[in-house]
Amino acid sequence: MAKSALLKSSIGKKYWMALTGLFLCLFLVGHLAGNLQLLMPNSQLQFNQYALFMTSNPAVKILSYLTYISILFHAIDGILLTIQNKKARPVAYAKSNPSANSSFASRNMAVLGTLVLVFLATHMTNFWAKMHFDKSMPLMTQTIEAAPGMKSEYYVGRSVGQYYQVDQVKLPGDKEAEAGTPPKQLEVKNGTDVYNVQANVKVGELYKDLHKITFDFFKSKNKLFGVIPNEGLLFTIFYVLSMLVLAYHLWHGFQSAFQTLGLNSPKWTPTIKFLGKAFAVLVPLLFAIIPLYIHFTK
């Protein structure tokens, strides 16, 4: 009885909403801390190193799987609850004045949450999926003046001081060397591994250039769907609006989670509510600054 109650009962479902929601708040903080590096000058290497760390560290992996599960659970549980809630009032009121007793955010958590989910899907397609699955994910390069007057592009290796001149490295998509030109000595395999072609030995590893992807994304002058010009601006607006939606979701969600978990007392609730609102404003605001900064500067 007790075990199934925790999953199936109305209150049980709410616990899960609260727990996953609060966990996702933690995720937001971590994600934000990482992303804020984009605002630092010359953050390319640092950011890409961070991105690498986030995709490879086993502890982070566990956390990220927890995050995926939380998002899924939060979404599915939320949908189930919303369906039940709709069923609980089969006949609607002819006249309703809900703003008299409740906030906009609190009444629209399902809609706001759905919008956040849509945002999440596009966001993950644009960055996370590319980072993980895109075979043509660009690799981080750096322009180095090896000798005075001799600037050229180098791939940045993961070991300190390790660079590979771009035009000496064969990428998986590259055509076979044309007759007459000397074959390239190095080749990128498995996305980021640098191999000596002749010896077939791994000599180093490169960084995926998430930084570039990000900047390109928000600065893109391409036409969206081949029609609407200046898609970078549209993406920026979309991201800022999405953060507004997230802010509303958090405005209610943060303190609501504490209430659901039973933490409501005259002593603590004002603090929790204040923290929740501060969180709901600050976190999305800082997130929103990033695309704005990228789009409108440099």
């Binding site: 009885m1 007790a2 109650a5 009962s9 109305s10 209150i11 479902k13 709410k14 609850l81 039940q84 809630n85 069923k87 609980a88 009032r89 809900p98 008299a100 007793n101 409740s102 906030s103 609190s106 009444r107 958590m109 209610h252 303190q255 609501s256 209430q259 659901t260």
Partner: peptide, 23 residues
Amino acid sequence: LNMVRQMDEEGFGNCTNTGACEI
């Protein structure tokens, strides 16, 4: 446990902490 079970069986919705009830 019993009261919540009965509440769920009656077809009431779930609390989303809007606070309308308190007002």
